[in-house]
Amino acid sequence: MYIMNLRSKSIAVLLPLEKIKAQLTSLGFILEDEATVVSDGRFWRRMLFTRGYECVSVSEEIGDAYPKDPVISIYATEETISKISEVLE
């Protein structure tokens, strides 16, 4: 059985959520689920995108926080991580 070499990467970026979502959608990721999460005393909306074994969670702070810097945690191949990173740079 072929096992993909998946690795983890997590980044916080000062980018609009829409831009990140658009990049994930263009790569074939599908929004599988979302939930409200409280961490660091702050409220976040966590969205889980998946594409096969690969998955990306995007957490954006909700409320009056400014600037918003979504946290993107990626579990994917090196190639997918590079493609997602293109939009983050």
Partner: peptide, 13 residues
Amino acid sequence: QPNERILEIKLPK
């Protein structure tokens, strides 16, 4: 209750 997958952090093998 939230989906179990949202409680998970995916980590390498």
